[in-house]
Design a binder for these strands. Sequence first.
DNA 1: GTCTATAACGTGATAGAC
DNA 2: GTCTATCACGTTATAGAC
Lengths: 189, 189
Amino acid sequence: MSSKRDDLLRAAKKLLWERGYEATSPRDIQEASGAGQGSFYHHFEGKLALAVAALEEVSAEMCASATGLLDADASGRDRVTRYLLQTRDGLKGCRLGRFAGDAAINEPELRAPIERYFSVLERYLAKALSDAQRAGELTSKCKPKDLATMLVAIVQGGFVLSRIHRDKDAINRATAAGLALLSEATKRT
Amino acid sequence: MSSKRDDLLRAAKKLLWERGYEATSPRDIQEASGAGQGSFYHHFEGKLALAVAALEEVSAEMCASATGLLDADASGRDRVTRYLLQTRDGLKGCRLGRFAGDAAINEPELRAPIERYFSVLERYLAKALSDAQRAGELTSKCKPKDLATMLVAIVQGGFVLSRIHRDKDAINRATAAGLALLSEATKRT
DNA sequence: GTCTATAACGTGATAGAC
DNA sequence: GTCTATCACGTTATAGAC
């Protein structure tokens, strides 16, 4: 149906990823989408409403990806490994975590889809870690929930360091080290 | 001497921390400092130049703090612990890491002082970890440099998660878990 | 060195034709 | 549903008096 609406959403998702909320103007989105002022304000109440709709889609996509990796049939240990060893392009940054420093994070409507993703991710990761502990694949005495928070922090902080150092692999070194340390907290047989 | 210059710098450091570069206008800084347009453009070429001067001061302060914690006389293990167990207010965010997602990070002049701090921090942390390995206080086989990157990522990612969840202690749980995992990779006597 | 006045431009939104 | 024209406001910077 409404092709222009989809075009606007697609452009918004792209530009919000690249530049964040503050640095993206409605005009930028109109130009990138090929839609005019009229379409923009016909389909959305304003910039914030469009950003909320865009981030809700991104959140749903990333939730699906994370649960796909973590919900599966493999052992707890393998699920955590699979999540951590995803290859990431650190220069692009996290499509949702990047908003932590954006002034827009203070808008409750915009923060909601972002927080939803991280809550899901941490819960699934904690479950996998808990399974790994019970299976004896992980002997750390840390609470699974705290370990999950720590692992997600490694990913998010990895993006930060990659962008600051202009080194796309900094994040991959950080997650690899996290996984290695986790392995070393594993019972040797 | 030039009190207005100092006032401007002080206000800029405060507002850049709270809001980032994009969301802080010269007007905001003028109002917060009590200085007028004239003083602003007399002392600085423009917004970017003031931000660079402000972040260079912040970078120097944070370098001094980090090296003070990590350079010291204690064992490698104790130095790492001391750094990680700093209590942090996650809601405020890192005064330098927060710019990773800001469009201004693309300005080389502004990125330079930020990167300088992280390079110093990671180097000192890697040295402490290396000392700990040689002293047998840490048995992990990971490279100290990679572990340092991982630990700094935990801090930076902890800030991200604290701000997204509106939970000032998320970062402290993340760093505590990182330290615990590091301990578990330590030879039991 | 500091002030006020003003300019040029961009932003986010509205109006109304088609 | 989409377009173009326009608006009020804020931003970044300049001009010139004191």
